[in-house]
Design a protein around this nucleic acid. Structure first.
Lengths: 155, 155
DNA sequence: AACAGATAGACAAGCAACTTGTCCAACCGT
DNA sequence: ACGGTTGGACAAGTTGCTTGTCTATCTGTT
């Protein structure tokens, strides 16, 4: 059966990883919309988190997310239009625009984080907290040289 | 430190999953290009596998990948242009076009599968074969009601 | 046999999130 | 003062999806 010959446990693993990701983000996205944050997509959530974690220029965000600085700038523009960040000139470097997370952006991250944590808690209840931590540890080991990309966060 | 307040272990888990996925597919995509399969993106590989596993119409592929039948049809058109599938009328249902994987498509899946398996083997060597199987079992449990989507396979 | 509803697919247009290309201003090291 | 690098703006293009609309075909019912 030629179909079976094409089976690949490696390809199936890739799909399991992707499925896991989308199981989480789809639920969070739907729920965020219900909580007054319509139109938020995974790339917004994760870009916002990266900004808040220190990637506060378009160039830096691009590096952090492994996309071009133009793509990062576009995401920042969208976040600004939504009211989640604002931009202001860097007093020490006139080339730069500093990106700041607004209170509304913090609200988004707080609600979003709680939603992600809720999904994670259900997963911990399902397979055991220690098993989940082991899964996370393993994934961290296996991906440790990779930065995450917004391109990967495509809806 | 407000940055730390926004930390979410659930959001970090989502990124670990995505990072794992892209660690695998990026390496496979690069290597496939070296082996004469340029321009192949993850959506192509996984759509081809779904066709080969039985989703041999655009409507069926759309269901299998959780995208619209139009999106599936566009992917099939791309696969056909690349020479990985061909389409022919269904003798029993004039509405339908049956999608067949070509020998070149089988070659892509064979090479791609081996590449995915190679990455998986390295991961097994890294964390232990039984640990990897446990990780896979857990992910399968946690995502079992979800079908994987080509939208998720965005490059 | 006729008909209504469902399904498959084609086509067009639009959207989101990226890319490349180009350009200019500002900074830094020599 | 100058050359190289960096940050960002802008435009245009690409990819992979979406929605909307339409037609042909199939199926079940009457």
């Amino acid at each position: 059966m030629i179909g079976l010959m094409a089976r690949s446990s490696g390809a199936e693993l890739a799909l399991l990883l992707l499925g896991g990701f989308h199981t989480m983000v789809d639920e969070v996205t739907v729920e965020l919309a219900k909580r007054g944050h319509e139109g938020v997509r995974p790339v917004h959530e994760f870009a916002l988190r990266a900004v808040d974690a220190g990637a506060d220029t378009a160039s830096e965000l691009g590096r952090r997310l492994s996309v071009t600085k133009q793509a990062a700038a576009q995401t920042i523009a969208t976040l600004e239009a939504f009211g989640y960040v604002n931009r202001e000139p860097d007093p020490n470097d006139a080339r730069r625009k500093r990106v700041r997370v607004t209170p509304r952006g913090h609200e988004l991250m707080t609600i979003g984080g709680a939603l992600f944590d809720k999904v994670r808690s259900r997963w911990a209840a399902r397979i055991g907290p220690e098993q989940l931590e082991t899964l996370e540890t393993h994934l961290a080991q296996l991906t440790e040289r990779r930065s995450f990309t917004a391109e990967d966060l495509q809806d």
